Simulated scan of single mutants.
Amino acid sequence: MQNPNSPSWADRTLLSEFMSVDELTELGTGDVAYIKPIKARDLKEMFPDVPPLHDNMTLYALLNADGTPILLADSREAAVANAFEAELEMASLH
């Protein structure tokens, strides 16, 4: 029986016959984004220029499909609004 959560077209081996690794990596870049809650103490890695903040503060990073940071917001709603304004398709993380 085939797993419905892993369709055959998503098989990396099969996809690599049609797309290069670089093409797969670029898939969705510039069109698809996701929001990730992030603690202030973990920000320096993604946003090197961020000023010092309280370590336990939760902020919301809007990230490109490839994980590249787009912006940092103080609320999820603000990050969603920016994605909407930039006409980005939102992907859900689980």
Rank of each mutant, 00 (worst) to 15 (best):
M1K: 12
N3K: 05
N3S: 05
N3E: 09
N3Q: 09
N5G: 12
N5D: 13
P7S: 08
W9P: 04
A10T: 00
D11M: 06
D11N: 02
D11R: 03
D11C: 02
R12D: 02
R12L: 07
T13Q: 07
L14P: 05
L14D: 06
L15N: 00
S16L: 12
M19I: 07
M19A: 12
S20Y: 01
V21Q: 11
E23K: 08
T25G: 12
L27W: 00
L27R: 00
T29W: 05
G30K: 04
D31W: 02
V32A: 03
A33E: 03
I35W: 06
K36P: 00
P37K: 10
I38R: 09
I38P: 00
K39L: 15
A40F: 02
R41P: 07
K44N: 13
P48G: 14
D49G: 12
V50R: 08
P51K: 13
P51C: 07
P52H: 01
P52F: 04
P52D: 08
L53S: 06
M57Q: 13
T58Q: 13
T58I: 09
L59F: 06
A61W: 00
L62M: 11
L63R: 08
N64Q: 11
G67H: 05
G67E: 08
T68W: 01
I70D: 08
I70Q: 11
L72F: 05
A73S: 12
D74N: 15
D74C: 14
S75P: 05
E77L: 14
E77Q: 15
A78C: 14
A79V: 03
A79I: 07
A79Y: 03
V80F: 05
V80N: 08
N82D: 15
E85H: 14
E87C: 14
L88Y: 00
L88K: 06
E89T: 13
M90W: 06
M90L: 15
M90C: 14
A91W: 01
L93W: 01
